[in-house]
Design a protein around this nucleic acid. Structure first.
Length: 475
RNA sequence: GGUCUCAUCGUCUAACGGUUAGGACACCAGGUUUUCAUCCUGGCAAUCGGAGUUCGAUUCUCCGUGAGAUCACCA
C-alpha cells in the first residue's frame, strides 16, 4: 500500500503554526514511507473565503519546504484538488445515499430548528436532530439541506496518536451533507475526497475528534473502509490555556521568515512541539525528522508555543549553516550601508558574526559600523560599567597610545592581538577597560565580535581614522 | 450542561513497575585575559489530590480536581 497523506486547509486566511504542524506531520509520514503528500483546498464555504489566501497558503508551504506531489496548482491523477470544482462528485455520492435511504431532505426552517435547540437546552439535554427526524420527508430538490440518516451506535477505534478511543451512540446525529447553497459540508466532502484520492492516513487536529464517530457512521453508509486516523493535539497560545488561533495572536508563518527565522528552524521547532524521538537530541535536520518521526511518539496533550525556545533554536540552525549558504540567505537582511560592499568583504564580516546571530534580522545592528563610519558618542563610554571610572583625559590618553601602537603594527588578527597585549603592559590597564574603550571608539555599537578580528576586518586606515575621530571628539 | 480527550520543573519534554525522576529553553552564578546575544562549568526547579493493585507506582485501576476540544447550512 502506498502511503498517501494530505493537508486540506480552507482558504480563509494565512497559514499559522498550528496549520503548519498538521501539514508537517502529514508530510513527514508521507516522505518517510516514500509515499505521496497531497494539498487539497476545502473551499466549500464561500462566505468565509479570503481573497488570495490560497496563493498565500501555497507560498507558505513552499517557503517551508513542505512539498506536495499533487495539488491545485500542479494537478495530479485525481484532479481537481479544489472542492468547489468537485461538486459533481459529491452529488453522485449523495445520490447513492438517497437511493439507499440514508439521506433525506431537511424540511425545517432555521427558526424551527432553533426552537428545537432552545427546548433541548431549557430541558438540559443535548440537542439531537435525529430526534426530530421527519416521518415523510419531501423529495430532495437541492433547495434545502440534505441530511445524513445516521445509525446511532457505539464506536471503538484506534488512533495512531491517541490510541484506543471509544464513544457511545449519543454523539451520532443526522448532520448536513449538502447545504442549501449546493455546496457540501466539510463533514461530507472530505470523506468523499479522501476516498476518491486514495488517502491512507487522515491526520488532523484534535477539534475533529468529537465528530469522528459521525464520520465512521458515514464511512459505513458509503461502503468505505476506514482509513488510518491520527489526531494531533493543539498548539496552545503562549498566554492562557486555549488553542492557538489567529485571534490569540497566532502569527503568519511567513512573518517568522521575514523576521529572520530559518525554515528549518520552524520545521524543527514545530515538530519538537509535541514530538521527540526519545533521545536527548533537540536539533533535527529536515532529513533527520523524515527518518526518525513517528506518530506513535506524538504527545497526547497540547503544547505551548515558546518564542524563547524558537529563538535559541534559530541560533543553533544559523550556526550550522555553511558560510556560502548563510550568505545566500542573508541577502535581504544587510543594513542599507552595505549596499556598495563587495561580496568578499561581506563574507568576511559574516564569518565574524555568524556565532552571534539569533535571527537573520540581527545582521544590521551587528554589522552596520563595518560599512559606515559611526559618529562618536562618548555617552556610551560614560554609560559603560567598566569605563565609567575612567576620566576623559585618561581615555583620550589611552586612545592616543593605541593609535600610536597600531600605526606601526602589522594588521592581521594575530599581529593586532600581539600589539594589543603589549599595549596592556605598557599602559598597565586591565583588558576589560582598555579593550572596551577601543572597541567603542571604533564601532560605537553595543556589541561586536572579538576586538582583534574586528580591527583586522575594518583595516588599518579605517581603524586609525576612527581612533582619531574619537580623540578629536573630546577636544 | 452533554460527550470526548488530556495531566512530570515556569515552558518543551525523557524515564520495559525498581533511576539520587534525565535533557533542553528561560533564569541565576562563575569561566573563556574586551563587549556580548556565541561557547564551557555549576545552580534553581516537577511526577495535580486521594484511594487501590504490588515487595515496590511518574508508570496499572478507580474516584476526585484541573485543563482542553466539541455540541453550525465553519472547517
Amino acid at each position: 500500500m502506498t502511503v498517501r497523506t494530505r493537508f486540506a486547509p480552507s482558504p480563509t486566511g494565512f497559514l499559522h503554526v498550528g496549520g503548519v504542524r498538521t501539514a508537517l506531520f502529514a508530510w513527514l509520514v508521507a516522505r518517510q514511507a516514500n509515499g505521496q503528500f497531497i494539498l487539497r483546498l476545502e473551499d466549500t464555504d464561500q462566505k468565509r473565503e479570503v481573497e488570495g489566501s490560497a496563493e498565500h497558503l501555497i507560498t507558505s508551504l513552499n517557503a517551508l519546504g513542505i512539498t506536495y506531489d499533487e495539488g491545485p496548482d500542479i494537478g495530479g491523477p485525481y484532479a481537481p484538488y479544489i472542492q468547489s470544482q468537485r461538486l459533481d462528485s459529491y452529488k453522485q455520492w449523495a445520490q447513492k445515499l438517497i437511493d439507499a435511504g440514508r439521506a433525506y431532505a431537511d424540511p425545517y426552517t432555521a427558526d424551527e430548528l432553533q426552537a428545537f435547540r432552545d427546548t433541548a437546552k431549557a430541558e438540559k439535554r443535548a440537542f439531537l436532530y435525529r430526534h426530530h427526524r421527519p416521518e415523510n420527508p419531501p423529495a430532495w430538490d437541492g433547495t434545502t439541506p440534505l441530511r445524513f440518516k445516521s445509525e446511532p451506535k457505539e464506536y471503538s477505534w484506534y488512533d495512531e496518536v491517541m490510541g484506543d478511543l471509544h464513544t457511545g451512540p449519543d454523539v451520532i446525529d443526522d448532520f448536513i451533507l449538502i447545504k442549501s447553497d449546493g455546496y457540501p459540508t466539510y463533514n461530507f466532502a472530505h470523506i468523499v475526497d479522501d476516498a476518491e484520492m486514495h488517502i491512507t492516513h487522515i491526520i488532523r487536529g484534535q477539534e475533529f475528534i468529537s465528530s469522528q464517530p459521525n464520520y465512521l457512521n458515514l464511512y459505513e453508509a458509503l461502503g468505505l473502509a476506514f482509513p488510518i486516523f491520527a489526531t494531533m493535539p493543539h498548539i496552545m497560545a503562549e498566554s492562557g490555556n486555549k488553542k492557538l488561533g489567529k485571534r490569540d495572536g497566532a502569527k503568519d508563518v511567513l512573518d517568522y521568515l521575514r523576521d529572520g527565522y530559518l525554515p528549518e528552524t520552524l520545521i524543527n521547532f514545530i515538530a519538537s512541539l509535541g514530538w521527540n524521538d526519545g533521545t536527548e537530541q533537540e536539533i533535527f535536520s529536515r532529513d533527520e525528522l523524515i527518518e526518525k518521526f513517528s506518530l506513535g511518539r506524538v504527545q497526547h496533550s497540547g503544547a505551548r508555543f515558546d518564542e524563547q525556545r524558537l529563538l535559541w533554536m534559530n541560533g543553533q540552525h544559523i550556526r550550522a549553516l555553511s558560510l556560502d549558504d548563510l550568505y545566500a540567505r542573508v541577502a535581504d537582511f544587510w543594513p542599507s550601508s552595505a549596499k556598495e560592499a563587495i561580496e568578499d568583504h561581506k563574507k568576511q564580516i559574516l564569518t565574524l558574526v555568524q556565532d552571534r546571530l539569533k535571527t537573520l534580522a540581527d545582521l544590521p545592528i551587528l554589522t552596520d559600523y563595518f560599512f559606515v563610519t559611526p559618529t562618536p558618542d562618548w555617552a556610551m563610554v560614560a554609560d559603560n560599567k567598566q569605563l565609567a571610572k575612567l576620566s576623559t583625559d585618561e581615555a583620550v590618553a589611552l586612545l592616543t597610545a593605541t593609535h600610536a601602537a597600531l600605526d606601526t603594527s602589522g594588521f592581521d588578527s594575530e599581529s593586532i592581538q600581539n600589539t594589543l597585549n603589549t599595549l596592556l603592559e605598557t599602559t598597565g590597564q586591565k583588558p576589560g577597560i582598555l579593550f572596551s574603550l577601543i572597541r567603542l571608539a571604533v564601532s560605537w555599537a553595543p556589541f561586536s565580535p572579538a576586538l582583534n578580528d574586528t580591527l583586522a576586518t575594518l583595516g588599518k586606515d579605517a581603524t586609525l581614522q576612527r581612533l582619531q575621530s574619537a580623540i578629536d571628539a573630546q577636544k
